[in-house]
């Protein structure tokens, strides 16, 4: 069992995530969100790690606080967060509203695959299998 400390922002948990593409690595703060189906990065992150990207044709329907949106989804070479790494990981490309203190989300796709257990009282996350 591996344990990682989460960063607390108000009542929310965050951590750092790194995303690799053909042209570089982009890291940013991610909201650890069990209410999100997908991991999400902003358009600017995609532009940075994949300079000659084409707008992804594949889209997912997302239910947000403001209604449904169709957001592009694209695989990154790898994602690394909380000591866990996955290759060819699909991430949703979408900009969160201006004014948010984070620009990315670590969603249930990552947390489920990583077999994560979130210990809210102790502000940590545990992984049973690496």
């Amino acid at each position: 069992m591996k344990t990682y400390r989460l960063e607390k922002y108000g009542r929310l948990f965050c951590t750092t995530g790194a995303f690799k593409g053909p042209t570089g690595i982009f890291t940013l703060k991610l909201l650890v969100d069990t209410g999100a189906s997908y991991t999400l990065i902003p358009w600017e992150a995609l532009e940075k790690i994949e300079k000659d990207y084409t707008v992804p044709k594949e889209r997912v329907k997302l239910s947000t606080a403001n209604g449904y949106i169709l957001a592009p989804i694209k695989k990154v070479e790898w994602i690394h967060s909380l000591g866990t790494s996955f290759d060819n990981f699909p991430v949703v490309i979408h900009n969160l509203p201006a004014g948010m203190f984070v620009k990315g989300v670590l969603g249930m796709d990552f947390l489920t695959r990583a077999k994560a257990t979130i210990d809210i009282a102790n502000e940590q996350i545990l992984f049973s299998q690496q």
Binding site: T23, G24, I25, F26, T27, L28, K29, K48, F101, K103
Partner: peptide
Amino acid sequence: ESKNVALEY
């Protein structure tokens, strides 16, 4: 032009 970048708040 930097290859590896971080966004922080």
